[in-house]
Amino acid sequence: MKQTGDNGKAQRFGMVIDLDKCTGCGSCMVACQAENNVPFREDESDKTLSITWMRIYRLTNGKSFPDAEICYLPRPCQHCDGLHEGHSPCVSVCPATATDYDGLTGIVSQIYTRCFGCRYCMAACPYHARHFNWWDPVWPKGMEQYLNPDISVRMRGIVEKCGFCFQRYQKALEKAHMQGRRELEEHEYQTSCTQACPAGAIVFGDLRNPHHKVHQLAQPDFKKHGRPKNPMAFRLLEELGTNTKIYYLSSKKWVREAGHNPSVMDKPEEHH
């Protein structure tokens, strides 16, 4: 597999989400849904059946008024690298190679026409970032006119998930090639959630590129499987070795600890 981008370096697209800035407004979820033709049903009250490529979790510090604090945590697919490259929990288990790790971009893709719906990837993903199409998509009358032509709609019986708006990457690459360029500017490839966030809490880019904001914010240490050097940054379930490419920033210790596994997390009451 080709491991480097056109600029000669393997890119590792990732996100930094500043939880201090996130207000939980849900714009990222809506933008994601619109960009990626994510289907919905009339009754979405059962969240275990909702297809939410981007989902916002509400975290609390477990204290009562006046010490109660909440934090909203947007969770897209974490695009895990695993402990050796491409060994993400889902890619390694998919029996039909329907989910793949792209060595060029670090994006974990989902090939909808290849997936036959065994759901092993869902069982393997600890982030619940993968969703099954329990129903065929049904769009309200007229809405099919608004579907994004750059990404296919999915049929029932297969798994789907966030692909970092890969269609935008392809479009940006095409445009650059037309202009005779081989490298993309940082702003040329941005995910829809990043652009939709009114608070500017989501930053997207190449984690390996020192000029990109994500690199500067998270300061990933690639010698230590991408662990962030920034003391305010953390990743979800760091101890599992999933080696995710979504970094979260928070000035609050209890929030940073909530991202870890239960036993390495101190009791919330003892902090803040």
Binding site: S92, V93, C94, P95, Y120
Partner: peptide
């Protein structure tokens, strides 16, 4: 159990040899 039974043959045809399920 599989969502798309008619595609079950993909597990052979497009086998991922690293998957235990294969």
């Amino acid at each position: 159990d599989v969502g798309q039974p008619l595609r079950s043959w993909y597990i052979f045809w497009h086998a991922n040899v690293h998957s235990m399920l294969t």
